[in-house]
Design a binder for these strands. Structure first.
Lengths: 230, 230
DNA sequence: CTGCATCCGACGCGATACTG
DNA sequence: CAGTATCGCGTCGGATGCAG
């Protein structure tokens, strides 16, 4: 870890936390990840060796700790970073100019994020299957299935001959924009950017379903309440 | 600027802000710096070329803007980073383990920080000169003079045959610890870690004088009110 | 003094392969 | 799945010097 040679507390924290990937790793822990693989899943582009060394560094710094042979969790110091993460996220949401360059789009990340954030209680207890079709996504990540059944949500990338209740067709960019609240689902449907077919009564719940993302609250309130990430 | 390939607002903000030096540069702007040299003074170890490229990047990102031929200031987006800086600083103050390694000590930074943070109103209007002597500082930065006269504080590194009102002798480490509120000035005096000689009535004000650092408020309150950096 | 260009070294970081 | 070892590239960033 490179130091700044300054006694300033900000220098102390940034030299630890503001290295590449580090704050995103913390984000994954806040979002509920516990294992090496959980973290990797939320950070597809990090190399295992780097992740490994970051975890070691964060352990030594007392931000995370091992809770088992292969599980970690945030310490008190780590949990204290949550407001920082939230504030930085809110700043990015409001002030970042990058407006979703196509290189920022990643269907896998999007769906993974959905899976862990959606509230299954919105749908009936019986199994409900929602298929997403992104016509502009790279081959192999165009079609996704979210399977909600008795309080659980599963994510599938392969067609298991599902009995699909709802089919959502749109561009990856549109769905991502909806997910991070740059537009509302309903508006996107109205303007034909999203096409929904299937069970009408279930369809009405989609907007509400898609609002439970922790990010989604960013757009709506200026000063932003505690988020329910987990 | 290296990107993460993620749409997450946190990824957007960190890829811009969490590169080496960047947040410390913002800190310097918040502290009132406007010119290239102001920033450099607070970041003695940054190279001019790197500072230059960071300023350019931040301009493009809309965090700072040129206000004149050679002055910059924070934009609205930049000002919005202040809570982030404060939170990160508070985190570092509370949770950073590094406990002032000697490599973090820097007499120049310390004195520069003092000069801009001290409240001259504490002392009488007439010229008051306080000399600091750090016996463990590197040669050439052992002796410093703070000159307070009618509402202004100047900093000197050379002996101008001053008529010194107060002489403060201690280690650089001790003074730094006091400055960032790891201990109080009075306690350090009591335990003989700081030796003060000179005008007794002025000496009594030192503790109060040294409490006006923006950092000093970190230690005292858990949730920390708006700081007066400027 | 301000700001930038150039050079070059160090090492942060990524890719891959491999082990338990 | 959870990491470690190795290798090598790329770039960050530090030193110096110069131009405005």
């Amino acid at each position: 870890m490179k130091t700044y040679g300054q006694f300033c507390p900000l220098a102390q924290s940034t030299q630890l936390l503001c290295e590449r990937w580090t704050l995103l790793i913390i984000r994954e822990f806040i979002a509920g990840g516990q294992r090496f693989g959980d973290i990797q899943k939320g950070l597809p582009q990090i190399s295992p060796s780097l992740l490994s060394s970051r975890l070691k560094l964060l352990s030594e710094a007392g931000v995370i700790e091992k809770t088992g042979i292969k599980t970690y969790q945030l310490t008190e110091a780590g949990l204290a970073l949550r407001p920082v993460i939230e504030l930085l996220g809110a700043w990015g949401h409001k002030w970042s100019r990058s407006n979703l360059g196509s290189s920022d789009l990643d269907a896998g990340l999007l769906m993974w994020d959905m899976r862990r954030s959606l509230d299954p209680a919105i749908f009936p207890k019986r199994t409900v299957i929602v298929q997403f079709e992104y016509f502009d996504a790279p081959k192999g990540s165009k079609d996704w299935w979210l399977v909600s059944s008795n309080g659980d949500v599963d994510l599938c990338l392969t067609d298991n001959d599902y009995d699909v209740d709802l089919l959502v067709k749109c561009s990856l960019k549109t769905m991502t924009a909806v997910w991070i609240c740059e537009m509302t689902f309903n508006d996107a449907v109205k303007s034909k950017q999203i096409e929904v077919t299937g069970d009408k009564s279930l369809g009405k719940n989609l907007q509400e379903w898609l609002r439970t993302s922790p990010l989604s609250k960013l757009g709506t309130t200026e000063t932003w309440p505690k988020l329910d990430w987990s």
